[in-house]
Design a protein around this nucleic acid. Structure first.
Length: 294
DNA sequence: CGGTACGCCTGAAGGC
DNA sequence: TGCCTTCAGGCGTACC
């Protein structure tokens, strides 16, 4: 489940091969993983909800950055943005099982590969970048200018990796809902998902069901520090691989071995040794320590 | 505003 | 061994 540390690791491993490379060919194998300009939000070309079928949009090779030289790879929260020199850009969200994989220029494609970019780069020779996503909760966004791409990132709150106590206070101040529900809201704070929400709450010594707006100033500051420390440690470990996650070079992460609470219901708390409690909060499996988190 | 439920989707894991 | 059910969850939408 890619959250901020996994997406950041993908960004870093991708940057090494992609920056300055030219995309000689782009192909979309599944139209419905892409959202084109003008598609309804969350549309992905899928005809969801009210049956009014939107007019099918024509996607050009240029929309997919064919012929572009990659000049930047940006990230905010869990969203990645591959920018071409012309200002065009491709947004990627990995969802639950999405992967961006660097692969040889020839050879068999993994199953569930939905898009392919062929790269020519002076340093590493010809390779392909694949977007693969078995469950298809992820997707690709097409941006025809830098402003549209920026606006996509700006839909999100401040990036959790560097969030300050002041930013967190601002985000949570009006949130009259459980702390964990607020932490999972990407418009408030960008990048925290189910795993790191539980990890950060435990590190901060705060129950995930506390009302977010009722945290004290010092609790909020401790939480901001806990979020940063948790995410930084996970980035250093190359992310968490609990099931599917690998970086752009196919390498799994190592943070799953360092997790304190996620997936450890009933196991001893690393702080006090008592069995960890579990339940459902904000429709998510949640694990915490009744003793250490107040 | 918030909360709850649901749909999307596949593969792993558990029950019998 | 094999079939069936359940679960995992990011995120948008509908409805209260």
């Amino acid at each position: 489940m890619p959250e901020l540390p996994e997406v950041e690791t993908v960004r870093a491993t991708l940057a090494a091969s992609l920056l300055g490379a030219t995309i000689t060919r782009a192909r979309l194998l599944r139209r419905d993983v892409a959202a084109a300009p003008g598609d309804p939000p969350g549309g992905f070309g899928r005809q969801r909800s009210h049956g009014g079928a939107p007019a099918p949009r024509r996607l050009t090779r240029a929309d997919l950055l064919q012929g572009e030289t990659v000049c930047a790879i940006d990230r905010r929260g869990k969203r990645l943005l591959v920018r071409g020199a012309s200002g065009r850009a491709i947004g990627v969200h990995l969802g639950m099982t999405g992967q961006l994989l660097l692969a040889p220029a020839a050879g068999r494609l993994p199953v569930h590969t939905h898009a392919i970019w062929t790269l020519a780069s002076a340093s590493s020779g010809a390779r392909r970048l694949l977007f693969r996503d078995p469950r298809r909760f992820g997707g690709i966004w097409i941006f025809r200018d830098a402003g549209a791409a920026d606006a996509w990132l700006d839909q999100l709150g401040p990036d959790a990796l560097t969030i300050t106590a002041g930013q967190l206070r601002e985000a949570l101040g009006a949130a009259r809902r459980p702390l964990k529900a607020a932490l999972l809201d990407q418009r408030l704070i960008a990048g925290v998902g189910n795993i790191y929400a539980d990890e950060a709450c435990h590190r901060a010594g705060l129950r995930p069901d506390r009302t977010a707006s009722e945290l004290s100033t010092s609790e909020t500051a401790a939480l901001a520090a806990a979020i940063r420390a948790t995410l930084r440690a996970a980035v250093r470990a190359g992310g968490s691989t609990l099931r599917d996650y690998v970086d752009a070079e196919g390498r799994p992460g190592g943070y799953q071995r360092r997790r304190r609470v996620y997936g450890r219901a009933g196991a001893p708390c690393l702080g006090c040794g008592r069995p960890l409690a579990s339940g459902r909060l904000a429709q998510r499996a949640t694990v915490w320590c009744d003793w250490c988190q107040g």
